[in-house]
Design a protein around this nucleic acid. Structure first.
Lengths: 229, 229
DNA sequence: CCTGGAGTATGGTCTGACCATACCCGGCAC
DNA sequence: GTGCCGGGTATGGTCAGACCATACTCCAGG
């Protein structure tokens, strides 16, 4: 007999219906969902079940709830995948179901790819975010501060890749491993090597040297996490 | 005054406490959380709020709830990040906040990397999962069936990379784009090119040819999604 | 020793109430 | 007429308590 496939829970039904409505009605970011009470009546479930479904959607970064009244109130469709990914990774690391090695390897894969893409596009770098982050790192007074600007530097590369999915994953990775990165910097003591790496990466990208950028990224991570690579 | 930082909601407090407990008590996968009623009393919130928090954790793939009694009942810590990632991607695609191009590009990045890693490890492929999937694809009678085994083939590569995070992301990607993949196969009509690609990828990996495996993967995706690459 | 049913702990769901927030709008003061 | 101010109201946030469904535990009886 095998697959029992237990009766779906009420909130799962709500989830399906809402998802279907998003697809069928062509709802976009910024549109509003019906109120909790209204949704409950339409789907013949209790408001509590509707709320559980909305909580799931909120966790997935698909809706954002605001109390009160007016155009901004209620459950509004949004799109912020980062927070969900971050929570996911942080908890997975907390549960030791992922090793830091796996996270760093993933980061290496993403950063090599992003740097290559960014170098191929070459031109843009309109915001000058990478340069600004590099300057801020020079002036950083603590490991925390240094890492903060380091994240900004690497996120600028991910943004320059032009792929929002990869950018979101990268953001989540960095957020989840922030503490670990700070410890790594403290352990390292001198950040001179890292800053020099950044200069090389930046130079390779702005000069359009994709292969050089990828190699520089690889060397950089090896310097930052010698215990892993 | 700027940052109001509205009062945290009750379930968010529960979330924090549970997360803290996981870290402090060193809880591992398989351990159980207190019952909903007990948690509600300990944290001085209603059971509804506890349930909303648990629903979030379940969404993130951190706990799994089972009714009834006994060792397997209650909220058990698990680790299945795939489902959360899948929902996230599926909804993001539904909301058009991600394009298929971004998803395919990400897939290309992951598959190239996985194939390279798998080739470097070379030896294993103990389960013969790749070969089995290839045989099943030969016998497939419909696009749906073909894609199902195609997913199995590519997941076998991701598994062979040895990185569970990347494997989880890959699983989510394939699940979220299943429908799109089926349509692509139907549009293509003849799967001969794809099957030949699979053979080349498999041969490169088993012979330890990392660069060849990566190139074969790139060619494969270009054949499958000519409109994008 | 085995078997079956009562007991019970757990999640799943519903109801109905009340609070907090924030817009909307009408009326009042100027 | 203009402006402010306060009630009305729709929305999410929270709670308490009840009942149902499920599945293990344990003990009585064969």
């Amino acid at each position: 007999m095998a697959d029992k496939a237990r009766r779906p829970r009420a909130f799962e039904e709500v989830l399906l219906q809402v998802e279907r409505r998003i697809a069928d009605d062509g709802l976009r970011v910024g549109d509003r969902l019906p109120g909790e009470r209204q949704l409950a009546e339409q789907l013949q479930v209790s408001r509590a079940s509707v709320r559980e479904a909305l909580r799931v959607l909120e966790t997935l970064g698909v809706v954002s709830s605001q109390a009160g009244r007016g155009p901004d109130a209620g459950a509004v469709l949004t799109s912020r995948p980062d927070s969900a990914l971050t929570g996911l990774l942080r908890l997975s690391l907390g549960l030791s179901s992922l090793t830091m090695r796996e996270v760093i390897d993933t980061r290496l894969m993403i950063e090599r790819w992003s740097a290559e893409q960014a170098a191929r596009r070459a031109a843009p770098e309109p915001s000058g975010a990478m340069g600004e982050a590099m300057r801020a790192m020079e002036a950083a007074g603590s490991a925390e501060e240094f890492v903060e600007h380091d994240i900004a530097f690497h996120m600028a590369i991910a943004e320059a890749s032009g792929n929002r999915l990869i950018e979101a994953v990268m953001r989540a990775l960095r957020d989840a491993m922030r503490r670990y990165a700070i410890e790594a910097v403290e352990r390292l003591g001198d950040t001179g090597v890292l800053r020099e790496d950044h200069r090389r990466i930046h130079a390779a990208i702005t000069s359009g040297d994709a292969a050089g950028a990828a190699d520089a990224v690889t060397a950089h991570l090896a310097h930052a996490y010698p215990e892993l690579l």
